[in-house]
C-alpha cells in the first residue's frame, strides 16, 4: 500500500516536471516533452526483459515455478511498455524527423524486440502444459535476448539518426531536463514494481485455484 502511495506521488511530480518544470527545447519545441515518458517506458521495458532473461536461466537451472512466474509476469509488462515506447517514439518522430517510422538501428532493434517478446507470449499460449510451456518460453527468451545486440550491430552497419543523448557524441542536456528525466524514470520504475508484484500474485492465485479445483474433483 505504501508503495502505491509513493508511486502515485512520484507520478504526479513527474507529470508536473514534464509539463511545467522542464524548459521547452529550443529546436524541437513542446513535442520534446514526450521524450521523458518515452525514456521512462524504454527503461522499464529493458529492465523487464533483463529480468525475463535472468529468471529464464534460473528456471532452466533449477526448475522452480517461482522463476517461471517471474519471467512470465515481467515479459507481459515489458511488452506493454515497449508498445508505449514505440507509440510515443512515433508521435515524437513525426514532427521532428518528418516521418512516423524509419529503419534506423535503434528503431529496428526496438521493433524486433517487440516482435520477439510478442512471440514469447504466443509460445506461452500454444505450448500446452505448464512444464513444456515454461521450458520452451525460457529457451526462446534466452535466444531472443542474445539475439538483440547482434541485431543492433547488424543494423548499425547502416547509419542511424536516433538521438544519442549520453555517451560519446551525445550533446549536453539542461539540468532541469536531467532532473525531470530522473523523476520520470523513478516514477516509471515504481509503477513497474507495483505491476510486477500484482501480476505475480495473480499467477500465484491461479496456481492455488488449480490446486483447489483438482482437490475438489478427487
Amino acid at each position: 500500500m505504501l508503495l502505491i502511495i509513493i508511486s502515485f506521488i512520484s507520478v504526479v511530480i513527474s507529470l508536473y516536471a514534464t509539463f511545467i518544470y522542464a524548459p521547452s527545447e529550443v529546436i524541437m519545441g513542446e513535442i520534446q516533452r514526450i521524450f521523458y515518458f518515452h525514456m521512462g517506458t524504454v527503461w522499464v521495458a529493458s529492465v523487464a526483459f533483463t529480468i525475463v532473461f535472468i529468471s529464464s536461466i534460473m528456471f532452466l537451472v533449477n526448475g522452480k515455478r517461482k522463476w517461471d512466474i517471474l519471467s512470465l509476469s515481467a515479459a507481459e509488462i515489458g511488452v506493454v511498455f515497449i508498445t508505449l515506447t514505440i507509440v510515443t517514439g512515433s508521435i515524437w518522430a513525426k514532427p521532428v524527423w518528418g516521418t512516423w517510422w524509419t529503419w534506423d538501428p535503434q528503431l529496428t532493434t526496438t521493433f524486433i524486440l517487440w516482435i520477439l517478446y510478442i512471440v514469447y507470449l504466443i509460445i506461452r499460449s500454444v505450448a500446452g502444459d505448464n512444464m513444456k510451456q515454461a521450458k520452451f518460453a525460457a529457451v526462446y527468451s534466452i535466444i531472443a535476448f542474445i539475439d538483440l545486440p547482434i541485431v543492433y550491430i547488424s543494423a548499425r552497419l547502416k547509419r542511424g539518426i536516433s538521438p544519442v543523448v549520453f555517451g560519446p557524441g551525445g550533446g549536453g542536456i539542461e539540468r532541469e531536463m536531467l532532473i525531470t528525466m530522473m523523476i520520470t524514470l523513478i516514477a516509471c520504475t515504481l509503477f513497474f514494481i507495483i505491476l510486477l508484484r500484482e501480476r505475480i500474485n495473480l499467477e500465484k492465485m491461479r496456481d492455488d485455484l488449480k490446486l483447489i479445483k483438482s482437490r475438489i474433483r478427487q
Binding site: I112, V126, S154
Partner: peptide, 27 residues
C-alpha cells in the same frame, strides 16, 4: 523441435524463427 511440439505445429516455426534470424538475413 519446439514448434512441432506445440498446438500450432508447423505454423509456429516461421513465427518463432524469422525474427531471430534477421541479423543473418541483413548481413
Amino acid at each position: 523441435a519446439m514448434s512441432l511440439n506445440t498446438r500450432l505445429r508447423e505454423v509456429l516455426l516461421p513465427i518463432l524463427y524469422f525474427p531471430v534470424i534477421i541479423p543473418v538475413l541483413l548481413n
